[in-house]
Amino acid sequence: MSDTTLRTVTVQLDGTDIEVAEGTTLLDACRSQDIDTPTLCYSDVLHPVNACRVCVVEVEGSRPLVPACSRAAEDGMVVATDTERVRHSRKMVLEFLASSVDLSYAAEEVHGWMDRYQVDSGRYGPPAPPDGDRDERKAHAGHHGAVDGFTAETVAQPAKIDNALYMRDYSRCITCYKCVEACGEDAQNTFALTVAGRGFDAGVSTEYDFALGDSACVFCGNCISVCPTGAIMFRSEYELREAGLWDEDRQEVTRTVCSFCGVGCNLDLHVQDNRIVKVTSPQDHDVTRGHLCIKGRFGYDYVQQLPDPMTTPIDEVLAAARRST
């Protein structure tokens, strides 16, 4: 092992001196001390984009707050994670998102942070009716319609359902860039997704808003597994949710190894009522880091004697699911 990996630095974290390996992020330093730090755009398996800013902490000598997820600890740094400034920024970031994005499918911990920082998204006014077509607005940077100060603008827009495997509902998108990264350099190297447009009108898109089948997408589903807000979802999960039949309490997660090739990816089969409703892979698995290909992700139908969701109208799939309940 080389010398550098052994070097450590000392930082003062909320008044306590701690020693961490050089290169450790402030987030990992916090985690080592069990200081719960909210994160939205950060993932252990992707490069940090430090865009959401919910993880900010106060570092002595720095005028702005710094993102814990991507800032490396430096020797002698004095860091505070629960000052009034930190709490204010975290609250406001969560409030901004909660007032403009549908967060109802976000993980429970997100709702926990919203409670902790006393988020009141209602104080910006009731949600504004959607202002035109957000895909069109993406294509026209630098111009927006007149504001109405009595309602709060949101990213509400119709869901995109353009293929049999998964759907995208960008009214739930916080523009965390995770799907773009997972589709691009950080995992899939397919580059089917981009952030298009600018400012509040920016959003995830394919080129010219192509349907996924016409884009470079290879349906690996890696974007689904990194999305923190349920904006990208298995069709099976989506349809069950829409029908009011999605019930995680009735689900069982079974770990297995993908049978399609010799790589040995771990699969977690989420099963409700004896039917596979989605497939994930554990993020801490050495081989997959949570990522799969189309076969492991969607090629599960042969294990269950249910109609093929690729070819069967969704009503029949739902009917079959109801029958098995």
Partner: peptide, 13 residues
């Protein structure tokens, strides 16, 4: 609002 790049939440929203 028009010129924000849209990358970070504090400025975008």
């Amino acid at each position: 609002r028009d010129e924000s790049c849209g990358q970070c939440v504090p400025c975008r929203v």
